[in-house]
Amino acid sequence: MALIRLARNLGTGRAKNVAIALAGRRAISFHDSDDRPHTDKLLRQSRVLALRGLRGDAGLNWG
C-alpha cells in the first residue's frame, strides 16, 4: 500500500491516473471513501484477472 499526496486537488479521475502511472503493478484496486465494497471484492477481481484470454471492450481503448 502507498500514499500519494498531490500538491493540489486534480479531481478523482486525474488523481487515479497519477496513481496508476506511479504504481508499477499489474493490478490496482481503488477504494473510495464513500464505497461500500462487497466483502470478497478483491478475491472476485483477482479471479477475473486470472482468466486467460481476457480482453477489454474495444470502446475502452486499452492497449
Rank of each mutant, 00 (worst) to 15 (best):
L6K: 01
R5A: 08
D40V: 02
R52D: 13
R36M: 06
D34P: 00
G11M: 01
A7E: 10
M1S: 14
L3R: 08
T39D: 14
R36K: 08
R44F: 01
P37V: 05
V18F: 00
R8N: 02
W62N: 12
A15E: 07
I28C: 11
R26E: 14
V48Q: 13
R14G: 00
T12S: 09
K41C: 10
A19Y: 04
I4R: 02
H38K: 11
L49M: 10
L6S: 02
V18D: 01
A19N: 07
L51P: 01
A7D: 11
M1F: 05
R36G: 08
L22W: 00
G56H: 13
L60G: 01
L42Q: 13
D40T: 05
A50M: 04
N61C: 09
R36T: 12
G11H: 00
A23N: 08
A15N: 05
M1Y: 03
H31T: 07
L60I: 10
D40R: 13
N61Q: 13
R52T: 15
R25T: 10
L43T: 15
M1L: 07
P37W: 02
G63H: 11
A58Q: 13
R55C: 08
N9K: 04
K41S: 14
I20N: 06
M1K: 09
F30C: 01
K16A: 09
S29A: 14
R47I: 02
G11I: 01
I20R: 15
L10K: 02
L51T: 11
G63V: 11
R26V: 05
S29L: 09
L22Q: 12
A2C: 06
L6D: 03
R25L: 03
D57R: 14
A19P: 04
R55A: 13
T39C: 06
A23H: 09
H38M: 09
G59N: 13
L3T: 14
N17G: 05
A19E: 08
S29F: 07
D35F: 00
L49S: 12
H31K: 13
R5V: 11
H38I: 06
H38F: 11
N9L: 01
N61I: 04
G56I: 00
R5C: 05
G24L: 04
F30E: 01
G63F: 11
K16T: 02
G63A: 09
L43Q: 12
L49H: 11
R52W: 03
L60R: 15
R26H: 08
R26N: 12
R14E: 13
R14F: 00
F30L: 04
L6N: 04
L42F: 03
V18R: 04
D35H: 03
A58S: 13
V48K: 15
L10H: 07
L43W: 07
P37K: 05
A58L: 14
A19R: 03
G24C: 07
I4A: 03
L22N: 06
S33K: 15
N61R: 15
I28Q: 08
W62L: 15
Q45M: 15
